[in-house]
Write a protein that binds this DNA or RNA. Structure first.
Lengths: 203, 203
DNA sequence: CTTCTAAAGGAACTACAGTTTCATTAACAT
DNA sequence: ATGTTAATGAAACTGTAGTTCCTTTAGAAG
């Protein structure tokens, strides 16, 4: 997250500052998983982290502020894309990875919370968009390779294909509440691949 | 929303009670659109509605409680499905309707808020799932008609096709933040129809 | 029209999330 | 090593979201 220059934690980011950040983000994640976004208060996070609540209020200020910083943390561990030699298998791998993340006991609630926070907090929304732009860019080459192979028509919007794989999974997680399992992932990948092959994502 | 029996508003739902509910839900919608889910407090809603804040706290208690009741209200105006005689056109109509709703100045933020609230409030989540189950059931016959016509293979999961149309739109609204316009809708409908025709949604 | 009481309203109260102040600790530069 | 000061932490403080209590209003039933 881009804090205003001069914000606490920017001039001496080593040692204690880093340890405090780590402890607070970890505690915030725990609180988020346990209580959901609406049930988090910063004083409790501070207590869990073994840190003065003044510090938490000073450095993050609000729950969405904290959430946005967690997202910055998550963004650093980018999932490397697959390269199996076939578009279907690559997309299936992407879907499987998404399913694994979203159904993970810890990461699932975290993603839910981040997305919920982004619906009303602009800095979180900006961070979220950046996060997914990076994720989509990481995986788009799968589709470009498919175009080179002649699997998929020229002019296909690679990003759109990647989005088409993930979308049904997030839709279930956030909106319809339908079950989300390995089979769902396979179907999402297969449907996206099929549509792409037919030129449904040609710009 | 199913309030516990004996809850205020159940024994004398006519006249004033109904007017109060209407005014409060309207004010809550305004507040939600203006300030987002995180910026709503019930006292302000009460003031906007010209209603005692005691009433709001007594009948709805929390912001998600209010949001869940708004959802119940929304559920009553169900969008009737199209029946154009072609699967592609029916799905395109569904997509267009979704785009119109989600980009509407008032309804868009409302849907965002409801979905966000559902990520941590279980009653809201239950109401939301019910809402979308009904929506999906309303539109599933489009696909069944397509199967009868021979457009789409036998055994295709109709609900899954409907979800495939909506999913990319919600994904953009909530997750990736990519633009959401008529063209996006058309592409989502076309991709779902294409995948369905190839049997990607056969159970 | 009268009665009964569910629901709304007003105002005082309370608890606690969030702030402010200032003393203490430890990063970084030299 | 030492000095400087960024960052943390403890405690006292404050504002206000949410509750409680009691009065008033107005639906429903006869």
């Amino acid at each position: 997250m881009s804090e205003p220059i001069g914000a606490p934690g920017t001039a001496r980011p080593g040692g204690r500052t880093a340890r405090v950040r780590e402890a607070v983000l970890r505690a915030a994640g725990d609180a988020l998983v346990d209580n959901g976004l609406g049930g988090v208060d910063l004083a409790e996070v501070a207590r869990r982290a073994g840190v003065g609540k003044t510090t938490v209020y000073r450095r993050w200020g609000t729950v969405p502020g904290l959430v946005a910083d967690m997202l910055a943390e998550m963004a650093e561990s980018s999932l490397p894309r697959a390269d199996t030699g076939s578009l279907d298998a690559d997309l299936a791998a992407l879907a499987a990875l998404n399913v694994a993340t979203l159904t993970d006991e810890r990461q699932g609630p975290l993603f839910k919370a981040v997305i919920a926070a982004a619906t009303w907090d602009e800095p979180t929304a900006v961070a979220l968009r950046g996060f997914y732009r990076a994720r989509i860019a990481e995986w788009a080459p799968c589709v470009d390779l498919g175009i080179e192979r002649g699997d998929v028509p020229e002019g296909t919007d690679a990003a759109e294909v990647i989005r088409a794989v993930s979308a049904p999974l997030y839709y279930r997680l956030l909106v319809s509440g339908d079950p989300l399992d390995a089979d769902t992932g396979k179907r999402a990948a297969a449907a996206a691949a099929a549509a792409a092959r037919l030129g449904a994502f040609v710009t």
